[in-house]
């Protein structure tokens, strides 16, 4: 009998390693011992379930979810959209996607951010949504600006949006960052470069998607997210016995 079983092992040569010294904070925050490999149990192949009553339909619209009535944030109006798939290219429906970002000037609405660029009174910078039955999601927002950070003396993050995705299991949990096609800061960023493989880095760059733009209104970028795939348990018990 086929039933859903374990998730494919994470390819940890594809993901960034823990210790990436040019991203300085990783030096003291990376474990030195090897990870202990765990064969999955119910603790790993289950995960939290969310419903549409957990969130408000407006939560995915960052042009409106913090703006005063009749006003909107300043910046390049964009749609960020795509699908959440697994490694078998199957859609991941009804899963929670959360995002956060700086405003058009690169300033975060966070009490710890002291960058001199001003906050935008009509922009919060966070959103969340559930994927539909085909794994599709979208947000409406402004394109974030680059911002400086204390790593190297003159390091600047490329424009980016942080994304958090759940999938159906705790072992699929993922946080990543989406960058924008053509940004010359991507190739210079120590956080981007924590990922060793350039093909893997390219997977984090959203493509300009003219087919999804709304003429005279909002430009669009497409960003698909791939979560770990899942195999079927072909044999419930080992043929030779446990």
């Amino acid at each position: 009998m086929r039933k859903p079983g374990e998730f494919y092992q994470r390819d940890r040569d594809w993901h960034p390693p823990a210790l990436t010294p040019t991203y300085k904070t990783s030096v003291a925050r990376s474990p030195q011992y090897a990870l202990i490999s765990l064969e999955q149990t119910a603790s790993e192949i289950t995960g939290p379930v969310f419903g549409h009553n957990d969130i408000d339909p407006l939560d995915c619209d960052l042009l409106r979810n913090y703006a005063k009535t009749g006003e909107s944030p300043i910046g390049e109006r964009i749609i960020l959209h795509g699908r959440v798939l697994d490694e078998n290219a199957r859609p991941v429906p009804n899963t929670l996607v959360e995002i956060w970002q700086a405003n058009a000037g690169g300033r975060y609405r966070h009490k710890k951010d002291t960058y001199l660029a001003p906050v935008d009174p009509n922009f919060g910078g966070c959103g969340r949504t559930m994927t539909d039955e085909n794994g599709y999601y979208f947000f409406r927002t402004v394109k974030p600006g680059a911002y400086p950070w204390r790593n190297g003396v003159n390091d600047w993050r490329p424009a980016h949006i942080h994304l958090s995705v759940f999938g159906t299991a705790f072992s699929q949990r993922l946080i990543t960052q989406c960058y924008f096609e053509g940004d010359p800061l991507i190739a210079r960023c120590p956080i981007v470069k924590t990922i060793p493989d350039p093909v893997a880095r390219a997977q984090l760059v959203a493509a300009l998607d003219m087919n999804a733009t709304i003429p005279l209104d909002t430009i669009a970028y497409k960003f698909d997210i791939v979560l770990r795939g899942r195999r079927s348990t072909l044999f419930e018990n080992r043929l030779e016995g446990n």
Binding site: R109, G127, Q203, I225
Partner: peptide, 29 residues
């Protein structure tokens, strides 16, 4: 097979997205 989307750090401002009350603003019900 598709490849899993690579992970990136959550960064210092993770609260904005995942716990905005702690970041200093109320936005979600």
């Amino acid at each position: 097979y598709l490849k899993e989307t690579p992970s990136q750090t959550a960064g210092p401002y993770v609260h904005i997205g995942l716990a905005p009350g702690a970041a200093g603003f109320g936005i979600y019900e």
